[in-house]
């Protein structure tokens, strides 16, 4: 009997790679909290609880062609699209070599042209029209790429969400929008953010497919994004995907998280995708004890090396403040 991932056309090695990417994102994220709490970096903002959605989606995209417009929690996406752990640590330490911003932006504001990761800002949802613009370019230039944009469920209330998706819908543009519904927009829970039964139902007004998937299941997200990409490339337009999971950490390192019950968080952690997916891979005898040990050691060494490198790396010169306002 074929197992779930084989039915989706994924090899054992591919699901192992998905798991490894999820675990890597989690471990990098955990390291950043340590660095923040020990006073070494001023700020961090987390992906924890959303790795399955981020990595599952990334593996369904074409990493050589597609453009991604991530939001600040998307460590799993940018790592999957070729940003290195060293790059992430340079960003966290705000060092000159940081490829996202040269130490100009707060961590999480990703961007790296060579990997087709579109630069982002802090005002939420502005990236949605940008992704639509990339998709418009794909249609105009007759190129076979899609743009993939993510945001939180609170951000789906912004005007740019409506304006962007409506534009994409009217012109049937190849853009995949994935709302990572982690149940909270800082302190405000989902039921105080939206009145509709879910986020994906909003797709109806944009004349595009909408689907809500279990964001703790990387294979379910993979399938949804894979199908969305196929439709987009076939000229059938965009898709709105809602990946439902739970935010395990506070909003950021500056948030005390006192607005939700500890029990609620503990309950949600029972659905931790890293644990569940590891169990699946063990049951399928793909993830062995030996392999797990090796993987953990490798990730630890990558994270350690990156941390040390970034900590030692130089800052920008003060007068670099003046560079790159306009083209030189």
């Amino acid at each position: 009997m074929a197992n779930r991932h084989t039915k989706l056309g994924l090899s054992d090695q591919e699901v192992l790679d998905i798991y490894k990417s999820m675990l890597l994102a989690r471990k990098v994220d955990e390291r950043m909290w340590l660095l923040n709490r020990s006073g070494k970096i001023p700020f961090t903002i987390s992906c924890q609880g959303q790795e399955a959605a981020q990595v599952g989606a990334s593996f369904a995209l074409n990493k050589e062609k597609d453009y991604v417009a991530p939001y600040y929690r998307d460590l799993g996406i940018v790592l999957s699209f070729g940003m290195t752990v060293r790059d992430i640590m340079l960003f966290a330490f705000a060092k000159a070599e940081d490829p996202n911003s040269g130490g100009r932006q707060m961590p999480g504001h990703f961007g790296q042209k060579k990997n087709r990761i579109i630069t982002g800002s802090s005002p939420v949802t502005t990236q949605v029209p940008h992704a639509v613009g990339f998709a418009l370019a794909a249609k105009m230039e007759k190129k076979d790429f899609v743009s993939f944009v993510t945001l939180g469920e609170g951000s789906s209330n912004q005007g740019d969400f409506h304006e962007g998706l409506n534009f994409a819908g009217v012109h049937k543009l190849p853009v995949i929008t994935m709302v990572e519904n982690n149940q909270y927009a800082i302190s405000v829970p989902l039921h105080k953010q939206i009145a509709s039964k879910n986020v994906s139902v909003r797709s109806v007004s944009y004349g595009m497919e909408g689907i809500t998937v279990d964001g703790n299941d990387p294979l379910a997200v993979y399938e949804a994004v894979r199908d969305a990409r196929a439709r987009a490339i076939a000229g059938e337009g965009g898709t709105l995907i809602e990946a439902v999971s739970y935010r395990f950490t506070a909003h950021s390192s500056d948030d005390d998280d006192n607005y939700r019950e500890k029990e609620e968080i503990e309950q949600a952690k029972k659905q931790d995708a890293i644990v569940l997916f590891a169990n699946y891979l063990r049951e399928e005898k793909i993830l062995t004890v030996e392999l797990e040990k090796k993987m953990t050691a490798e990730i630890n060494s990558i994270v350690n090396e990156a941390t040390d490198y970034a900590e030692e790396a130089p800052y920008s010169m003060p007068e670099d403040t003046l560079k790159y306002v306009y083209e030189d």
């Binding site: 453009y67 417009a69 579109i118 630069t119 502005t126 949605v128 029209p129 940008h130 992704a131 639509v132 613009g133 990339f134 998709a135 418009l136 370019a137 105009m140 743009s147 005007g159 740019d160 409506h162 304006e163 962007g164 409506n166 534009f167």
Partner: peptide
């Protein structure tokens, strides 16, 4: 929708 006119234009411009 003016924000989309600007925002979609910005995206297309970033593409090239």
């Amino acid at each position: 929708a003016e924000s989309a006119i600007a925002g979609v234009g910005i995206g297309a411009a970033m593409y090239g």
